[in-house]
Design a protein around this nucleic acid. Structure first.
Length: 468
DNA sequence: TCTGGGGTCCTAGGACCC
DNA sequence: TCTGGGGTCCTAGGACCC
């Protein structure tokens, strides 16, 4: 057996100085974005629904108080519309993404490095930043005043402790009296005594620790570990043996040893997926072809945007696991792409070939998707030379013609809207048609989004209207 | 009737190599 | 009783994150 290197844990020991990280996190981010443009929603229980209006993926405090769980299916909570004045909106990712960019710009000024961790969270490197707490409060106020978005900020010696501090800042704000008031909104563990920190860790359930999911939480509890403090005091070697090197890192991070660094430049993705549940069950091959063509086109755009090519492509189709009355069917197929490609025409052609092999009539399909695999950096872009004949003489892979076609496709869609120019196999669908074009017939695979708010910040025709 | 859509990392085990 | 000793690559599965 090869001996296990201790590298993943040992490397950070080289850090000379204790670090300091902040975590800036939007409160109930999607719900808060909606309230910025629709103030009548303030104070009301509000949920944002997933694609297809399937389940709740964000909740205002008032909605949480009604007992609505994260991921609660809409059909189980919709009675609260009548009973409790619950408002439900379809997810408006164009709006959230744009608000996120603005938030990240303001938050970046807090320190000397930023890792955008998710749509509503970023880590900030605070090494060498004086008066971190005061700066954090100022950053919070700017985000509130300039964007109308509430945030909380946690500060600690490691990313795991910054996360934990953020959790405390939120809890202290949500439930005044549960923690000292000065910890609300901004919680800086670095300015507390060891005793005070232990007290906070002791009050934090182990399941709230970043990196401890439901499975490990249950196992830890069975092992007598209920709190973050008890987890921090476990023997790292035991944790590694009984669980994994991943949880061992968490234990060390809780103890103040930074094992997880700040990743400022996001690494290129190793795989790119586009998958969707359908708005209605789909039975016809032609509808599946349209759906997969559409998904694959989106994935191909993401692929080109990060400058990669795919060496393989996976397609899956499946019936609903939630409908026992339907005959189950779920299959996937991986096809190689040789040579690797970023050409929408070729990728969609391959995806449809896979679909042809997977499709069986007689099933009610509920979901399908495309994943691009084996991603590798694309060779440097050929210079744009419209007049020159293709060196390889054809429209084969990597040819100048393929590259120019994709550049033109992306340029047109960047100007006129994501679906303005698309393959015929995609059929209608996606975004509304450009002005003057006919609305294509709705297809069963298209997702339901019946309660979406306007895309206030990214569409000229959906701007806020003010009447004098 | 109605249950999201992305990602990451780590480990174990098998195939295969010299 | 003994059965070589290293290695790499790939895949599936399990855990986690938002």
């Amino acid at each position: 057996m090869p001996t296990q290197a201790a590298a993943p844990v040992a490397a950070p020991l080289a850090r000379q100085h204790p670090g300091a990280f902040a975590l800036v996190d939007g409160n109930n981010f999607y719900a808060s974005c909606e309230r910025v443009f629709e103030p009548r929603l303030i104070g009301r229980p509000l949920v944002v629904l997933s694609n297809n209006d399937g389940c709740a993926i964000a909740r205002s405090e008032e909605a949480k108080a009604l007992g609505i769980a994260m991921g609660a299916p809409w059909f189980r909570i919709r009675h609260l519309e009548q009973q409790a004045g619950l408002v439900a909106l379809s997810a408006n990712f164009a709006l959230y993404g744009d608000m996120s960019q603005r938030l990240m710009e303001v938050a970046a000024a807090l320190g000397c490095g930023q890792e955008i961790y998710s749509i509503d969270e970023c880590f900030i490197d605070l090494a060498g930043v004086p008066d971190a707490s005061a700066r954090a409060r100022q950053t919070r106020e700017r985000i509130q005043r300039w964007l109308g978005l509430p945030t909380c900020i946690g500060i600690g010696a490691t990313k795991t402790l910054a996360k934990l501090a953020n959790h405390i800042a939120k809890s202290a704000e949500r439930k005044p009296g549960s923690y000292p008031a000065r910890l609300a909104q901004v919680c800086n563990l670095l300015e507390l005594s060891a005793r005070q920190r232990d007290w906070l860790l002791q009050r934090t359930p182990v399941a709230e620790v970043w990196g401890v999911g439901p499975r490990w939480a249950a196992q830890l509890q069975a092992h007598g570990v209920q709190t973050a403090l008890q987890l921090q005091r476990l023997d790292p070697a035991l944790v590694r043996q009984r669980w994994s090197v991943v949880l061992e890192r968490t234990v060390r991070e809780l103890g103040g040893l930074a094992c997880i660094g700040l990743e400022q430049a996001p690494a290129p993705k190793q795989q790119i997926a586009c998958t969707r549940s359908f708005g209605q069950p789909v039975t016809e091959l032609d509808d599946l072809r349209q759906a997969l063509s559409h998904f694959c086109s989106r994935a191909a755009l993401k692929l080109r945007q990060q400058g990669s090519r795919a060496g393989a492509l996976l397609v899956f189709i499946r019936t609903s696991p939630f409908r026992p009355q339907d005959a189950p069917y779920a299959r996937s197929l991986v096809l190689p792409l040789s040579p690797p490609s970023d050409d929408t025409v070729r990728l969609v052609g391959t995806a449809l070939q896979a679909l042809q092999a997977l499709y069986r009539p007689g099933y009610r399909y509920a979901k399908a998707g495309v994943m691009l695999l084996d991603l590798q950096a694309a060779p440097p872009q050929a210079t744009l030379d419209w007049g020159a004949p293709d060196e390889d003489g054809g429209d084969g892979e990597g040819s100048g013609r393929s590259q120019r076609l994709m550049q033109a496709l992306d340029a047109v869609n960047a100007r006129l809207g994501a679906q303005a120019l698309r393959l015929g196999s995609s059929g209608g669908g996606g975004s509304p048609p450009a002005p003057g074009c006919a609305e294509p017939a709705a297809r069963p695979w298209q997702m339901r989004q019946q309660r979406r708010s306007p895309r206030y910040t990214t569409r000229w025709d959906e701007l806020w209207q003010v009447r004098a």
